[in-house]
C-alpha cells in the first residue's frame, strides 16, 4: 500500500511541486486548494499524512490542525506544516495547535521525503 498524502495549499505551484516530488517518490497524492476543502475531504481521502500550508483562504493551516485534532478519530494523523515562516514562533504556534512537524519552503526533495519518513515511517 502506498502512503497517501493529503496536501492542502492554495498555491497551484506548490501543489504541483509536491505532486511531482511525492508521486515520483512513490507516494499517493491528493490535494485540496484551501483549508476548508482539505478538512471536508479528509474523511473520504483517509490520508496517512497531511501536509498543510499556513496562509490560506477560508480556513488557514492552524484551523486545519485544530479541526483535524478536534475529532478523536483523526487525532493521530501526522500533520506537517508547510511554512515559509522560519521564525521560531510560527513553529511553536503550529506545534501548540497539534502539528507533528514542519517543512520549510522552499523545500528540496530530500528534506520533504525525510520529513515524511520521520512521521509516517514510509521508506520512499
Amino acid at each position: 500500500m502506498k502512503t497517501k498524502v493529503l496536501a492542502i495549499d492554495d498555491s497551484r505551484t506548490i501543489r504541483n511541486l509536491l505532486a511531482a516530488t511525492l508521486e515520483e517518490a512513490g507516494f499517493e497524492y491528493v490535494s485540496a486548494v484551501d483549508g476548508r476543502e482539505g478538512v471536508d475531504m479528509y474523511d473520504d481521502v483517509a490520508p496517512d499524512v497531511v501536509i498543510t500550508d499556513i496562509n490560506m483562504p477560508n480556513l488557514d493551516g492552524f484551523g486545519v490542525i485544530e479541526e483535524l485534532r478536534g475529532t478523536d478519530i483523526n487525532s493521530k494523523v501526522p500533520i506537517l506544516v508547510l511554512t515559509t515562516e522560519s521564525a521560531p514562533e510560527m513553529k511553536a504556534r503550529a506545534r501548540n495547535a497539534g502539528a507533528t512537524g514542519w517543512i520549510t519552503k522552499p523545500f528540496d526533495d530530500a528534506s520533504l521525503i525525510f520529513a515524511l519518513k520521520r512521521v509516517t515511517g514510509a521508506a520512499a
Binding site: 522560519s86 521564525a87 513553529k91 517543512i103 520549510t104 523545500f107 528540496d108 530530500a110
Partner: peptide
C-alpha cells in the same frame, strides 16, 4: 533582522547535511 532566508532555521539546513 528577519530578512528572509530561503533555507530557514531548523529546516532543510539540517537535512542537507545528509549529502
Amino acid at each position: 533582522d528577519l530578512t528572509f532566508e530561503p533555507m530557514g532555521l531548523g529546516g532543510p539546513m539540517d537535512v542537507s547535511a545528509i549529502d
